[in-house]
Nucleic acid binder design. Structure first.
Lengths: 188, 188
DNA sequence: GCTTGCTATGCAACCAGTTGCATAGAACGA
DNA sequence: TCGTTCTATGCAACTGGTTGCATAGCAAGC
């Protein structure tokens, strides 16, 4: 269950509430792990009752109070244990690829709009990541030299950038292929 | 539920038994979707009772009999309907990236073996995909010209190749970063 | 004769994650 | 004043997927 571990890493980097975690999962952590707020609240509750996390009620002005979570010693130990366990290299779950192969049994050209939409989303993500890299790591306002944590965050972000760049190039290839098939003849 | 659709695509490309599907999911379809045999048998049963698939008992010599599934008309219609629906661009679920960020709170150098192992797995997958491409699409024994279905299978395979190639390059980057951190000083 | 491995199918229990819904105070704009 | 958005938390029901286990025939090798 890697959500637990992703939460431990995120809370070690910076303690925060469930709501704040959910927003982080839409941004930086979300580069490589996603979670909804429901899932996060549930797991936080379980982790706290398991003694992995500490909670602190934080009254706030002009907005609802929040519960700030931080990592307790057993949480840190649990993360460390996980880090020393081997994990399976992940495999893809790529719906769009299923669709592309399925298009052979339908109209390939009908997929064009869908693929173009995915192309836009991945281009946007790439631009977003590149802006983040400039802001946090390579731009003039970035800290230099980076500490170990920042170096590791940067190399993970470079992975996200490489993934989005690769995906955009591949989707160009897919679009060209679909157009070629649509132009040269009917489908099966 | 994309497993249903992946099964429909696979059975349209070639009818087969649950066991054969499971092996395909370890190979070509598994480039972009994974499933265990238990999951496949269960879904096949449901799809058949929903009328999406036809079954045929096939007695075999020298090995147990099998049930050969093929796509019925409603199954084809269901696939077509899904192809015309938009889907969400997928997001990553990358455990290793969580580990890498987590290494800041442990010993970065301890991750080296793990990352090297992943590097080997992805290098092997890349070699495997490239061999498949040569065999089925670009080598001397490959059909030419390709039909629409083969063109689409090829473009999906090119996606898998691009993914593995990108991953191998990124893991080189990760290894260099971990070694640099291990060499220059202690962790947090 | 025994073990190992391959083909072939399946059940049962569990777990992670999604979807839909609910609540509630405060700010903000039409 | 009314609807919308943002912060903040949560429950309940469901679904998709994993894990562990079971069965059974046949082939190959020791």
């Amino acid at each position: 269950m890697a959500l637990e571990h992703a939460i431990l890493v995120s809370l070690l980097e910076q303690p925060g509430s469930g709501y704040e975690l959910a927003r982080r999962f839409e941004r930086s952590i979300g580069y490589f792990w996603t979670a909804t707020h429901q899932q996060i609240y549930r797991v936080l509750k379980r982790m706290e009752s398991d003694g992995l996390l500490d909670v602190r009620d934080v009254p706030q002005e002009r907005r609802p109070d929040k519960k700030e979570y931080s990592v307790a010693a057993p949480g840190r130990a649990a993360l460390s244990g996980w880090l020393h366990e081997p994990i399976e290299p992940e495999s893809l779950r790529h719906d769009l690829a299923v669709k592309i192969r399925g298009a052979a049994f339908d109209d390939p050209a009908a997929l064009l709009h869908e693929v173009e939409r995915h192309h836009r989303v991945h281009s946007d993500r790439l631009a977003h990541y590149l802006a983040g890299e400039l802001r946090d790591f390579t731009g003039p306002g970035a800290p230099a030299p980076l500490d170990a944590g920042q170096e590791l965050q940067h190399v993970v972000l470079r992975g996200g950038i490489a993934y989005e760049r690769m995906t955009v190039v591949w989707l160009d290839d897919v679009l060209a292929t679909l157009r070629r098939l649509g132009a040269t003849g009917p489908h099966i």
